[in-house]
């Protein structure tokens, strides 16, 4: 049973240093698969100013660059208590084939205190998961 709609690649985007590498990987993957790219920039909406919340201009720039690579990209900025849950739910609802995530090195204390979004998505997602590391280091 094949659906007429193209497959979906979800990029869980958060503006940080490894985001660029993850974005490029996601565009490449979507290109190979002939897939639609959904850029998911989830934030908790708990603070007035949130560094995880991407600027509209940056997001527009990203969809533009995806378009140049021949990939159809849309942006979603959902808000909810837990970012990993949002990513998992949206990927499920979109029937995503692949979820692309950026990861970074974290200290053991950091891992102890804060849960890892990447880890939860990796363990619980039904789709394939691609983790992209920060390449600058």
């Amino acid at each position: 049973m094949s659906t007429p709609t193209p497959p979906v690649v979800v990029l869980a985007h958060s503006p940080n240093q490894s985001a660029g590498a993850a974005f490029e990987a996601a565009v490449r993957q979507a290109g190979w698969r002939g897939a639609r790219l959904v850029i998911l920039n989830a934030s908790t909406g708990e603070s007035l100013v949130d560094p995880h919340h991407a600027r509209p201009s940056d997001l527009a720039d990203m969809t533009g660059r995806a378009g140049e690579a021949g990939v159809d990209a849309v942006v979603e900025q959902p808000i909810g208590p837990d970012v990993a849950t949002i990513i998992l739910d949206r990927a499920d609802a979109l029937g995503a084939e692949l979820i692309v995530l950026a990861t970074r090195h974290r200290s053991s204390i950091g891992k102890l205190i804060m849960g890892s979004t990447a880890q939860r998505v990796l363990m619980e997602a039904d789709a394939e998961v691609l983790l992209v590391k920060d390449t600058d280091r």
Binding site: T44, G45, E46, S47, L48, V49, H53, R55, P81
Partner: peptide, 9 residues
């Protein structure tokens, strides 16, 4: 009104 879209700084 806990969750609101963050404002651009």
């Amino acid at each position: 009104h806990l969750r609101r879209a963050p404002v651009e700084l």
